[in-house]
Design a protein around this nucleic acid. Sequence first.
DNA 1: GGCGGCGAATGGTGCTATCAATCACTTGCC
DNA 2: GGCAAGTGATTGATAGCACCATTCGCCGCC
Lengths: 233, 233
Amino acid sequence: MATTVLHTTVLDTLGRRITSGDAPAGTPLTLESIGTEFGVSRTVAREVMRLLEGLGLVRSKRRVGIVVLGIEDWNVLDPRVIRWRLEGPGRDAQLRTLTELRHAVEPLAAAGAARHATDAERAELVAAAARMRLLGEAGDLEEFLRLDVRFHEILLRASGNEMFGALAGVVAAVLSGRTHLGLMPASPVPEALDQHEAVARAVADADAEAAEAAMAAIVGEVRSALGGVERSS
Amino acid sequence: MATTVLHTTVLDTLGRRITSGDAPAGTPLTLESIGTEFGVSRTVAREVMRLLEGLGLVRSKRRVGIVVLGIEDWNVLDPRVIRWRLEGPGRDAQLRTLTELRHAVEPLAAAGAARHATDAERAELVAAAARMRLLGEAGDLEEFLRLDVRFHEILLRASGNEMFGALAGVVAAVLSGRTHLGLMPASPVPEALDQHEAVARAVADADAEAAEAAMAAIVGEVRSALGGVERSS
DNA sequence: GGCGGCGAATGGTGCTATCAATCACTTGCC
DNA sequence: GGCAAGTGATTGATAGCACCATTCGCCGCC
């Protein structure tokens, strides 16, 4: 992983450059320029270009070279694009749109989990929610985050819809970004802990409606909190 | 088209083969085998591999070759993966999960559109809804589909969340698949026409709650009509 | 006979060289 | 001055090379 994979670094750099706006739509590139800038051969430059093209970030045309595309063409749902944008200057906006996506998806995923989760998954959700309360009250934010991520991942993957499961990484990024950006209170609000337990209980009871409602409450709170508190650092 | 982009055909073939289950998880591949099978050079085979790797369909390891991954690693939200799966044997299941995704996203997108759409977008939505009624009553399914797709695309793109906008192609694929699979009645049910007009009106009036509710009704109907995803246990 | 180490085969990684195809821009002709 | 042909730049595609990490089998030792 850390070894070689030369094209990864080039891809990351270029991807960040484009998604950050440093290389706005219409910026021309050539394989040659990429190769010389990064000290790689044209072969590698071509691979990177193809990857970027697959992500909708650029479009390559003969004789013209490679041109950067606008955001309307980007695969904004691709994990790599999301990561780059979260690392760039548009991080706040990105967190907002991602949170809105969570708001849309997670309640329905919770309902699905209430219907389809295995016994083991239901049990792990309940255990995670209980442990989150302990950690939250103890103020261990880092470990709390880890469990929070796990909680939502189980839920999304147990939803019976692999589309939702594919968003597990996104949710993890949002949660992580939120705490590491200081958008979380020093200790989680009790309501959030209550709602997580409510979701876990509803899933354990196979009560889809209750699970959906409780999850909607979680994401709704976060969403309004994120919109209201923009000055904390 | 057929002349250039040599790698596209190889990519499509391999992508379909993997997503269809013809090449299940664990299937080994080598650059050499791909090159000889499709009559292309190793460079092209490498590009295809990188693309497939980017989609999470395969993983390449030294000495071991390239192995096909399971669905849990796929980028199931990528338009190409969706297209392949829609063309494969799992089409019905794919339509169901995509419809569930629509169910999650479109109501919120409608609410967003009610808040953020431009005047032109609002006007086009109203016009599209009105024309859909005419076409629906006339029984022109093909043209109706075209407008239906347009309607939902405007809405998603006007939502103010580019994540939702990125799903426009998905929705188009679902709608198209539905009618071409004969899952649509000979003429659209009046309720659907009413709801489309209700959404358009609510967006025109900047009434986010009404838009969300009306869109929820549209997708909810479709969902239950598609074959009882619900049937709680 | 079993176990451990060493070496060879394998196959991705990356590079260079080379040719083909295309297309924008320039130049020259009318 | 306008238009068409030529030309050069740039991607598309291939072949062949060196490199190296990994794996597997063979051999020797206990």
